[in-house]
Structures are given as structure tokens and as C-alpha cells.
């Protein structure tokens, strides 16, 4: 029932997650932030069993922070994604595995190249221009295929995201009223209202 969306633009990545925390048929909270910044230019959005997902995201966040303190160099988006994938893949074959689906978006602050990685709870990972998790994938993948193009400006990216959200609100039985949307670009990570 949870939704994650990601779009790569000209010099930014746009990530969106629904802000609903639900247990069974009951909405427990609106305004839940299902994202964690991994460093100044990389952001992870995630879904999964709430305890698991938050714990995993913060585990990755803490380990990457530790890496930066130890080595005084930040990791690239690709390195962050590879590391996270390895943790998920190793976890899959342990006694208690994490059931977390996620998107990792980031921008290289020097080259301003944006990247987006799609990853599922098994540890399957692929670099994409646009990605979706959850039921939203059934509705939004076609919207992305039709309307996504390379080098979109931020306004175009937001417009594309709005098309997706509109589609979800009209066609998905579950009404996800609130979304948290974040932009990652060379200036860092910021939340925007869509």
C-alpha cells in the first residue's frame, strides 16, 4: 500500500514517498517521513514493515556517516547504492532479513550528474531514469514511459510527478492524500511542496 517514486532530471533527482503510516486498515499517522539523508547529496526513500524499514535506513545512514568520519571522503551515489545492496543481499540469506524496498537518489556535487537506483528487498538493484515501488508502479510506470525525457528542468520534473500523483489519486483505491517530496541537487537536499 506504500508508494515510492523517483525521477532523474537535468541536474537533480526528485524523490517522493507517501507520508502515511498505516497498520492493517487503520491510518496511524499522516506526515511520516519515509526518507533519510545519507549525506549532503544523497537521499534514500524506503518502504517496508515500519520497524524494519526505519531501522535499516538508519543503519545504512549511520554506517555511511561512520565511513565519512573515518576516511574524510564522502562516497558517490553508486558506491552508496552498491554498499546498501550488499547489506540487503547479505541480510536476505540471514535468519532475520530486512524486508525493505528503496530508491536511492543523488547528485555528484562536482559534475552535477544525477543518479537514481531502484532496489528491492532481495537486493536486486538497477540504475534507472525513473522508478516506482508499490502499487504505484502499476499506475506510474506507463506515465513515466510516456512523459519522461532526458534533461528535464525542475519544473518539468515536478509537473511529471504531479501527473503521477494525479493518476494515483484517480485510479488507486487506496487514497494516499499526503506525499513528502524531496529534491537532491548540487546545493543539497530540500523538501518541496507539490
Amino acid at each position: 500500500m506504500e508508494t515510492l517514486l523517483g525521477i532523474v532530471g537535468k541536474d537533480y533527482t526528485l524523490l517522493a514517498a507517501d507520508a502515511v503510516s498505516a497498520r492493517s486498515i487503520v491510518v496511524m499517522k499522516r506526515g511520516e517521513d519515509k526518507s533519510r539523508p545519507l549525506n549532503d547529496h544523497n537521499l534514500m526513500v524506503f518502504t517496508g514493515e515500519p520497524g524494519d524499514a526505519v531501522n535499516f535506513a538508519e543503519f545504512i545512514q549511520a554506517n555511511l556517516k561512520l565511513y565519512e568520519i573515518r576516511n574524510a571522503t564522502p562516497l558517490s551515489t553508486k558506491a552508496i547504492a552498491s554498499y546498501t545492496r550488499r547489506e540487503l543481499a547479505d541480510s536476505l540469506r540471514s535468519r532475520n532479513s530486512y524486508a525493505v524496498n528503496l530508491l536511492i537518489g543523488g547528485v555528484d556535487p562536482k559534475t552535477k550528474t544525477p543518479e537514481l537506483y531502484w532496489m528491492d528487498y532481495l537486493g536486486a538493484m538497477v540504475k534507472v531514469n525513473h522508478g516506482a515501488h508499490g502499487y504505484a508502479a502499476y499506475f506510474c510506470s506507463s506515465v513515466f514511459d510516456r512523459h519522461w525525457k532526458a534533461d528535464m528542468s525542475l519544473d518539468e520534473g515536478i509537473a511529471l510527478l504531479q501527473k503521477c500523483l494525479h493518476e494515483l489519486r484517480t485510479r488507486l483505491v487506496v487514497n494516499q492524500s499526503v506525499f513528502i517530496v524531496k529534491v537532491v541537487d548540487s546545493n543539497g537536499i530540500r523538501e518541496i511542496q507539490v
Binding site: R85, A89, L92, D120, L122, G123, A124, M125
Partner: peptide
């Protein structure tokens, strides 16, 4: 086969 194992095994 399974994509996660394709990646892990290639590594």
C-alpha cells in the same frame, strides 16, 4: 536467474 544473486555472484 534471481537478479540479486546475479549481482552478488558477479561480485
Amino acid at each position: 536467474g534471481l537478479a540479486t544473486d546475479v549481482l552478488t555472484l558477479s561480485e
